[in-house]
Computed example of a mutant assay.
Amino acid sequence: MPRTIVRRSVTSLAAFALLLSVGACGANASSSTNSDKNLKTVSFMLSWAPDTNHIGAYVAQKKGYFAEEGLNVDILATSQAGAEQAVSTGAANFALSNTFNVGVANIKNAGLKLLAQIQQRTSAIWCSLASNTSIKSPKDFDGKTFATFGANESDAVIKRMIQTDGGKGEFDKVTVGTSTFQTLSSGKADFGGFYTTWEGVQAELNGPKLNCWNEPDYGVPGNADEIGIITSDAEISKDPRTVQGFTRAIQKGYTWAYEHPDEAAQILVDSAKDANLDIKFVKRSMQIITEGNYWGPRDEVKAGTFTIGTPDPDGAQKYFDFVADSGAYTDQNNQVVTTPPVATQQIDTQYLIPGADIVKAIQ
Rank of each mutant, 00 (worst) to 15 (best):
N72Q: 12
A24S: 13
L205G: 02
S179G: 15
A60S: 14
S123G: 08
V176F: 08
F322I: 08
A27F: 05
I227L: 13
D314Q: 15
A92T: 10
T290Y: 09
L96I: 11
C127W: 08
G193M: 05
I267N: 09
S32I: 15
Y258T: 04
G253I: 01
L205F: 06
D225P: 04
T290Q: 12
G315S: 09
D325M: 07
V10K: 07
T339S: 15
N101A: 15
P216S: 03
S88H: 02
N98Y: 06
S154L: 12
S35V: 03
Q117Y: 04
E204P: 00
I308L: 14
N28K: 13
F194L: 12
R284E: 03
T122Q: 11
V301S: 04
Q61P: 01
R3Y: 15
V22R: 13
A14M: 06
A124T: 13
N109W: 01
A29H: 07
S271G: 10
A77P: 07
E291H: 02
T122W: 00
R7G: 14
Q363H: 15
Q61A: 10
R284P: 02
T197H: 12
I118W: 13
T290H: 08
E84F: 06
R121Y: 00
A156W: 09
A83M: 07
A203I: 06
K108P: 04
